[in-house]
């Protein structure tokens, strides 16, 4: 089971803040993204955004990063704090 979380504008666009995915692991963040699109084709225009950032277990990573069972994968827009 992978826990997927969304933040900020992306969370509003998807109308979802978190969900669980059953995927065979290890896989990559890109695989998680593809599984989300397979389950929710209407998310294409928001999730396919190249500017999106991602994190695995709260560390920012690129989309080729590995994901293991029990990990938390986060997707979010570029950050704007400070």
């Amino acid at each position: 089971m992978i826990n997927v979380v969304f933040f900020a504008q992306l969370r509003e666009q998807l109308k979802t803040d978190q969900l669980q995915l059953e995927l065979s692991t290890p896989c990559t963040v890109a695989d998680v993204q593809q599984a989300l699109l397979d389950n929710h084709p209407q998310w294409q225009e928001f999730l396919a955004n190249r500017a999106l950032m991602c994190a695995v277990n709260q560390d920012m990573v690129q989309s080729d990063a590995m994901v293991n069972d029990g990990n938390e994968v986060a997707f979010f827009p570029p950050v704007t704090g400070g």
Partner: peptide, 14 residues
């Protein structure tokens, strides 16, 4: 620290 915070810390302003 400020430059990095603005690009690496997960905050979003609305």
């Amino acid at each position: 620290i400020m430059d990095y915070l603005k690009k690496k810390a997960p905050f979003w302003k609305k």
